[in-house]
Simulated scan of single mutants.
Amino acid sequence: MAERPTSSWREGIEEERRELAAGTLDPECACMAALFPDALLIATDGVMDAFEADLQELREAPDERVFAAVERVVSALNAINEERGGSAYETDEREQLCDYIDQALNEQGIDVVALTARHGLGRHQLTDKWRRW
């Protein structure tokens, strides 16, 4: 399965903790735990759990069902972002989330390039219709 962005975010938090403990990082420069509080990680993982469950049913599914699954995951991420004042996901995190969705679909045998092209979209426009983050 595609690596969830939350995995790399957690790794970043742990790396920062190690650097702080070793004294190799100035505490003023530590930001990972603040950027990715546990509540955000847990909520985002919950959305990914639901998306991954949806993926099991999408192999050979019509385009409309694939787009519906993408809309659900994006809308759920929108809600998390809105709950956090619109700043839950910064640019890098947004790109990671979009890449995760794309990779997860591809791993289920869904050709995202062909899917989006059939609907007059570029590959990287898959989430644009619904995305507010």
Rank of each mutant, 00 (worst) to 15 (best):
A53I: 11
M32V: 05
S75K: 12
N78M: 09
D128V: 12
R4S: 10
E15Q: 13
Q103E: 07
R131I: 09
V70E: 02
P27C: 05
E71D: 09
R131L: 11
A43R: 05
E95F: 14
K129I: 08
P5E: 05
I13Y: 02
Q103A: 07
Q96R: 15
D49S: 10
R84Y: 09
T6A: 08
R132E: 15
A114F: 10
E57F: 11
W130D: 06
D92R: 15
A76G: 06
G122D: 12
A69Q: 02
R123N: 07
C29H: 13
G120W: 00
E82M: 13
A2Q: 07
R94A: 08
M32G: 04
G122Q: 12
A61Y: 00
R84N: 14
F36V: 03
V66H: 00
P5R: 03
L41K: 01
A30V: 01
A50S: 13
R132F: 08
G23E: 01
A104F: 00
V73I: 12
T24I: 04
D111A: 03
T116M: 06
A117H: 07
A34K: 11
G85H: 08
L115Y: 00
D38Q: 11
E19D: 10
D92I: 13
G85Y: 08
A43D: 11
E11C: 04
E19Q: 15
A53P: 04
E107C: 04
S8E: 14
M32K: 12
E19S: 10
F51P: 00
V47C: 02
V74N: 01
R118T: 06
H119K: 04
A114V: 12
A76P: 08
L35S: 14
R72Q: 14
V47K: 01
P5D: 06
R65H: 10
L25Q: 03
S75P: 05
R10K: 12
D54R: 06
A34G: 14
D102F: 04
